[in-house]
Design a protein around this nucleic acid. Structure first.
Lengths: 232, 232, 232, 232
DNA sequence: GATGAATGAGAATTCATTCAT
DNA sequence: CATGAATGAATTCTCATTCAT
């Protein structure tokens, strides 16, 4: 009797847990092998169910893929707004925290594979790309832009092209996530994420130039050469 | 009549021209759709030949893929050394030139898709990954490291973790290439590469902080929080 | 309606029945058309399933081929030993029985095509050849050798090179099987197996020579001429 | 000048020699790998010409195959008639000579692979099968039949079913050829052809039974059991 | 709900054959 | 005559998807 109840309970728990288990298995497989190369049977096996069960929860492979992107990343964006409001100290500190938290909460988790996945499959899923850009990338970038602008208005940061600087600042973080989910897995010598992030923070806050470097005063930016002929 | 002309054309092309034509077609298809999704028939069609012809030049899909990576990127690394020796001015200038040239000669050409491709397929081709890392990525990074170290020794740059700063500085360039070969293709509003690169150069040379910003003197780096539970 | 019935039938067959059905279809196709010429789709069709189903049971064409040889012939070897022990009469009788039983239980069944198949494909599957020789041919030949030796020791048979005589005695039986699975199928006038086997038995037991033939006493064996130049 | 002439001569010799060279290459490849598995490119390569050249001499693969069978075996049949007429001694001697000569002139030469080839491909080339049977097999068998009948009428041989005994007597020779062109190539321990042929001759001339064996007088032939159910 | 046997469309690959040179 | 680059029909094999149980 007890056993029956127990089984039933477990069964119910199962039923509701399934989607999450399937998504978790799917994230792993998709980020490791890519969309086309991932076999649904493998996803099912990893989640401990049969191929057919997958289809009870997701219409097909493509829907599963979309669910992975939508349902796992979206929740993360919500936290953003709050943290910013709470914060009292300098923008520099806030920026650092954001980078580090992005890494610890996203980059180094299974979710860290999603950016790589989107880069990989963007052209094959344009719809999803637009969705991802609108719901994930853009809000996050807007968040950074607002930080930068606040920093400038406070006099903490120098005047800048905030829109594009936001791109540029986030890029190393995304690349770190991509790297650890791709090449890094094949190489002997692994990258050290924290050391990488610190190098990033130092370089973007303080710049490469020495305090009294001549170039800091007089240096001018190099002009852009004409694109090569082979360019598209 | 048309047929005759067409046939003639077919035979004008020669064994020597073919490999380059095929590789070119392959780069486009692979970078656009990924390895698994690319159909060899499409590659052949794009190169204006039939399926079978592809196999006269490349043993199979995998060999074609490797050839794309090996034979197109490798030559580019050679130029590096020379330029550095010729240069007389500041390291800052040289660094800018390198970034801009990388963009105009690689990033914005069809070759710019290769980094995306390698990120995508690294786990599926570990052998190739190691090769690519050894022959392409590492030499380029070493080049940047040597620039940074020279800058430091000249007093032009502040002391730094050159090894990792090199990673961090190159990341936005790679990201730009990935972006233009993925999401950017699906979005209305395109990124402006030159504006992006300038933002990158300014931010990394001068830093975000104002000259007289308080944080520049007293600011300390935030500690790294514990990784989240979900982390791997 | 028809469709429903058809579908039902498809599902009546079960995982357990399939391998045997597939092997049976495969024997027929392979022995009729050879390995290379047999299309897996035809094998599947003959077994009443689709192409894909074949691959659920056999990894690929080669494995199917090996299974045909291994799993169909092997069981037959077991009977051998027993019969010999039971038998009380003359070796001549036993030998006759063995030939006739080989024909009725192997030669004239679908299995009779396997020797032809092995002859055909031996060079293309050396591994399998060795296996077949060790597990099928050799035991059977050893069985005949032991019969011959017993016959000699009893004084029933004349002294002989039992090892090679065993080869020679079995050859016409194999030839008969090969013939009925090859040329015989294309000719108007079919061979009569029983008549053939009787001719074989008579000729090998009694010899061609007349009882009182002069040659039987005085005849000497002709020497072997030098091999022709074209010989390998 | 001399050189030119020489080249020309060689060239001409080439032109006329080609078909024979091609056939020779074809026999080797076909008998080793079978019809379907043999690539025309390999045949061409073995003959030292290009793929295209093959088509100057033989319309297609099938024609080449037929030529191999037709043009190489047919000449051999001519010798037969003559030898029989010349011979003065016993039929037993003649029979031995025929077996040995068949081996040295056919069996152990590249031609020895043709029987295997015909067994293999008979069903795929019914036309050719009939031709081969009519032109090669049947004449040869008729030749043996006539020997046997002459032997019987002379009192040298016992009365017999000459038609089928001819089949049976030739079978071990054909099997020997098949064996050496198939399994034998994959095994450590090779068969010894001459020893095999001698065992064959002894067994068929004298029989297995001892001179005074009881069975020779009283022995009766075993009845044929009913064919097994699986029989076709 | 869950299963996994069966399906069949689709992609990679091979190779006989053609034909411009 | 000879060549060998190019072709494309034909075949093996894979895997997302279905559906009877």
């Amino acid at each position: 009797m007890l056993n029956l109840l127990d089984t039933k309970k477990r069964w119910n728990r199962r039923k509701t847990a399934r989607p999450a288990e399937l998504l978790d298995a799917a994230i792993h497989m998709f980020t490791e092998k890519g969309f086309a190369t991932t076999k649904l049977e493998e996803v099912a096996a990893r989640a401990g169910v049969s191929k057919g069960t997958l289809y009870l929860y997701y219409q097909n492979k493509e829907e599963l893929f979309k669910a992975v992107v939508n349902e796992t990343f979206l929740p993360l964006i919500e936290d953003l707004k709050n943290r910013e409001l709470e914060h009292l100290g300098s923008i520099s500190e806030l920026l650092q925290k954001d980078f580090l938290q992005w890494w610890t909460h996203v980059g180094c988790t299974p979710l860290g594979g999603i950016p790589k996945l989107m880069i990989t499959e963007a052209c094959n899923f344009p719809e999803l790309s637009r969705f991802y850009n609108e719901k994930i990338i853009d809000p996050w970038r807007r968040h950074i832009v607002s930080l930068l602008e606040k920093g400038v208005s406070r006099g903490e940061f120098r005047p800048m092209d905030a829109e594009y600087t936001a791109w540029v600042l986030h890029a190393p973080m995304v690349m770190l996530a991509c790297w650890t989910h791709s090449m890094d897995r094949c190489l002997e010598e692994k990258i050290e994420p924290i050391r990488y992030i610190h190098a990033h923070i130092k370089s973007c806050l303080f710049g490469l130039l020495n305090e009294n470097s001549e170039f800091r005063q007089t240096g001018t930016l190099v002009d852009c050469p004409r694109p090569a002929d082979g360019a598209e």
